[in-house]
């Protein structure tokens, strides 16, 4: 059952006052502008046992995504498509407020929103990943471990997933005498687009992008908007127990396209180097 809770992080009164005062002047505690994102660092192929991996640092938030490829049955109703499964777990290393155990609703939402961004944009052409129609398909798992949580886990996790997926090498399977055989060869996955999510929160009437954990502890509402390489919207999730006006949504939607394009270029650039 879902219930309303207070943020586990309680900002000191003075710190909160300072933040709110700064916001009225268009500045933030870490010196950023309202629409400024934190520094993004990506290391590719950090886990050699995985078929693809990426370590993403967005400010102090840190996520590792690993790709593992297997074969299996297709999903019901999607017999002509390979299976793509994105999961996320916030590790107890990430913050003093995370306890080990089954995922809570926030973690489930995180995993589902990241998965939706990838799935709905049709980033991977899953129709190319079928071995026997309706029987055997490629199953791609992208598992994400959040190892340090300092806000905006939606975007950090989403960037980790797209980085790991685009840089991964799929083992090539073939069917020999009705048995799946790993040929030992590898190839890049059929990537069609790069979906990039941008998350904004609302504190009072101020909209700020890429929030830190401190800022999230004071937020009224959150919105995550994913755009693809064509600048089209592919997934949206409003979160937290507050609301937005139509104009605020349109503002974030516009900014998500521009900032999304910047992040996309940045990821492409980092991948080349």
């Amino acid at each position: 059952m879902s219930l309303s809770r207070k943020s586990p992080i309680i900002l000191e009164y003075l710190r909160k006052r300072q933040m709110l005062d700064l916001l009225t002047t268009g500045k933030r505690l870490d010196g950023r502008n309202l629409d400024e994102l934190r520094k993004l660092e990506i290391n590719f192929d950090v886990i050699k046992k995985a078929d693809g991996s990426a370590q993403v640092k967005l400010g102090n938030s840190e996520v590792i995504a690993g790709v593992k490829v297997e074969t299996g049955e297709p999903f019901e109703g999607l017999e002509n498509k390979g299976a793509l499964i994105v999961t996320a777990e916030v590790l107890p290393t990430a913050s003093p407020f995370i306890e080990p155990g089954p995922p809570d609703e926030d973690t489930i939402e995180l995993a589902r929103v990241v998965d939706r961004g990838i799935r709905e944009s049709e980033m991977v052409d899953l129709e190319k990943l079928v071995l026997i129609h309706g029987k055997i398909v490629y199953t791609i798992f992208v598992d994400c471990s959040i190892i340090n949580a300092d806000g905006n886990l939606f975007d950090a996790t989403s960037y980790a997933v797209i980085s790991a997926l685009t840089s991964c090498k799929l083992p090539i399977f073939k069917i020999q005498d009705d048995v799946v055989v790993n040929t030992g060869n590898k190839q890049g996955p059929p990537i069609t687009t790069l979906p990039v999510s941008i998350t904004a929160i609302k504190i009072g009437d101020t909209i700020l992008l890429d929030p830190t954990a401190e800022e999230e502890s004071c937020m009224e509402a959150r919105i995550t908007i994913t755009t693809n390489s064509n600048g089209e919207y592919t997934a949206i999730q409003k979160g937290s127990a507050g609301s937005f006006t139509l104009d605020q949504i349109k503002y974030v939607a516009d900014i998500a396209r521009n900032k999304g394009e910047q992040i996309r270029e940045k990821i492409k650039e980092l991948m080349k180097s």
Binding site: R116, E120, T234, A235, I236, K238, S243, F244, T245
Partner: peptide, 10 residues
């Protein structure tokens, strides 16, 4: 005020 907004699809 908008209190729920989700999208899946392009």
């Amino acid at each position: 005020q908008i209190t729920l907004l989700q999208l899946d699809g392009i």
